[in-house]
Structures are given as C-alpha cells and as structure tokens.
Design a protein around this nucleic acid. Sequence first.
DNA 1: TCTGGGGTCCTAGGACCC
DNA 2: TCTGGGGTCCTAGGACCC
Length: 411
Amino acid sequence: MLHRTVMHIDMNAFFASVEQAANPELSGKPIAVVGGHGRTVITTSSYEARAKGVKTGMAIWEGKRACPELIIVVGDNRKYTYTSTKINEIFQDYTPDVEAFSIDESWLDVTHSLSIFGSAENIAYLIKSRIKHLFDITCSIGIAPNKLLAKLASDMHKPDGLTIIEPDNVSSILEQMPINELCGIGKKMQRHLNMMSIYTCGELGRCDEARLTRKFGIVGRRLKEMGQGKDTTPVVPFGKEDDVKSVGHSSTLERDIDDPAEIRRFLLQLSEMVGSRARRYNVSGKTIHLYVRYADFFSSWGKQTTLKQYINLSDDIYRTALSILNTVELEQPVRLLGISLSNLKHQAEQLPLFEEERRKLFATQAMDSINDRFGSMAVTFGSLLPGKEKAGSHVIPPSWRPEGVKNIDVK
DNA sequence: TCTGGGGTCCTAGGACCC
DNA sequence: TCTGGGGTCCTAGGACCC
C-alpha cells in the first residue's frame, strides 16, 4: 500500500494572535492572554513576549518581571472557538479527514486529495494564505507519512513554518532528534530513557525491544516504534471519535477557604457546571470524583465513589460530592476544588414517570438553555448568589473540540 | 505576595464471582 | 476441605497532552 500523507497544522500563539488580530493596538506588542482574574497563569503569549522570556504557565507577575511592558489580556472564549471552528471548516475543503487535536491543532489526512490539488505542499500554501487573509493569523504546518511525524514536523519551524518529512528522509531526520521532541515523551519518560543512555530518536529506535519492555511494560514496544518514526494511528474525522469519557470542572479559589459553608457553596457551583455540561452532552455517569488541593499547593487528595445508578442532575452530583467530602477531615484551608463525572453512558431521552421528577427536569433544562446563551453561570441556584467566589473558567481548555466534533455534543 | 484547567491512558492492588 | 486461575469492577495515583 502506498504511504499516507498526513498534515499537522498548529496555529501560532493562537489566543494571542486572535487578540492581536482583533485589536490593532496590540499587534506587534508583547501580550499575554490569561484566564480570568485572581490566581491565574499565562495561557498564551505573543511572539514579541516570548522573545523577552515570557512563557506559558508563568504567573502574571513572573511574566511582568521578564517583560515589564507586557500587556495582559483576559481571554475571550467565544473569539477562539469561533475562529477555530471557521479554520477547521477551511480544512474540510481539502479533505474530509480532519481531526482536531485541540483548539489550535488539527491533523489532516490528505492522501486522497493529492491528485486534486497537486501536492500536499500546495494544499499547505492554500490553507496558510486563506487563514492569513481571513483571520490575520499564521500557522506552522508539518507534512509527513503519519501523525507522529507530521506533528514533529510542524514543530520544527515556527512561526509560519512549512516542514516536509519525506518517507526517505525519516531516519536521517530522527537520527539526531532529541527524544523529548516526540509527542508522548514527557519529562519523566525522558529522564528514564536518558538513564538508559538513550538521548536521540535514532538511539531509541535501535534499542533492544526487550530492554524497553522490561522497563516500561507494554509501552516499551510503542517507544521503539516512535524512535523509528512509525505510527499507524489513523486521522479520526469529526463525528467518528470515541465518546467522551469524563466531564469535570475544577477551579482554584480566589483565596484559600476553610469555612465549611463556603466550601459547600463552591462545591454546589462546580456540581452545577459539571451537571449542565453532562446534560448538554446527553450523558450521565455513576462515578463521581472529588479533588482537593490544599493551601500549600503541594498536598492534595482525590477520592471517588461509584454509585449503583447513573446521574447527571446537579443536585445529585452535589450530594455525592458532599458525601465524599464528609468522609474526610480537612487538614488545611482549601486552594482548589474539582469534581468530575465518569463511567458515562449515553442517556436515552425519556420523560420521568412522576410529575415531580418531570418538573425538576424541565426546570433544569430551562436553566441549561439560558446558561448556554448567556454564559455558564448567568443563572444558577439561589444559594450561590451571596458567594464572592466565581467558579467560572474563563479560558477554553485545550481539550475543546470544534462544534459537532464529538459524538456526544451540544445539540 | 508565586505556581490554571480539561482531558486520556496506564498500572497496581483488592474484592468478588465463577 | 483445599487448591488455582480467569475475568470484571473498583479505587488510587501517575504520566502525558493541549
């Protein structure tokens, strides 16, 4: 069989680029996009800011220390989701096989489009120019025989790069490539491999498989393949992905709290966010996981419980999370609380038998639809109103997918 | 006056059933 | 009564990605 041609497209400094395109006063300047107020970190910074040493994950004050003229911009989800959706629509003009890896990265399998558009390189230039023209954003594109290598390639030239890895060049490119450049090899794995005197992909690819499986188990074999640039995972197009497996929300409080009533109020708020999203996805779950991080940042715990029945009503989630919390003696004030719902199943849409249950469901649906239109916490339970804390996450998580991408999705 | 949030996958050990 | 093994479900925790 002929080899595949896979493209990986990575929007450069996506959130920051969108903000700069939307506001000319920001263009050419060092800016950092942050997720709301309070205790937050830099989500993305412009290339001007990166040149001064500003990095993703820095606290605002750290960013300002590195670059005093840094402009802080509070992120606006809707701008990014809108732009990302439009960009993914552009990709669809060149192949139906488009997989969104995150809000700013997609893979395209263009194997069957080459005869129509001439070459992958040509498709890349067309895509680049359309995105630049419509949104004033640049992207880096990698073209290779598989997803692993395409992603590696898109990382090789930034910003606005185009890198092609031909099948014949794979081994020469990988020979000196540090292993941590591969998607899937993080800090810990790198350290383990380094201790085995493996530093480059070339070395990893030549390593004795048994030696790798002894150390890493089932992952060992995959590691060797990665070192050789082998990857057979398909580009999974929109609508064909696996169902979502968990729905969760967590949030760092604006200040550490130890008042039980405040903690409960926050828990209710999180339950409402998890529940409303689960209901929009039309899933319910029977495992509830509660996560607590203490004031010292380093100590934390998580506890989960599995129920006999599936739930997705905020109130049920809240009660379950609270019962978990009640089994624990808190050791410190709380910095972060999180709830997630897993063990999910699709919920058949059916009306409850009893009037009271039906009313509860209708009220819930009405609230969901308002939240959908006006933002996640526009309407909520009365007991939340006196609270000062806000649990709303202001920045779209990277796991976000364009509209209609997941099997389970809104509408 | 530090250090976000949303996911997936994998492993290990224990309970329980056949 | 004693023995082993497989399978499934559960909890807890870690690594990785954006």
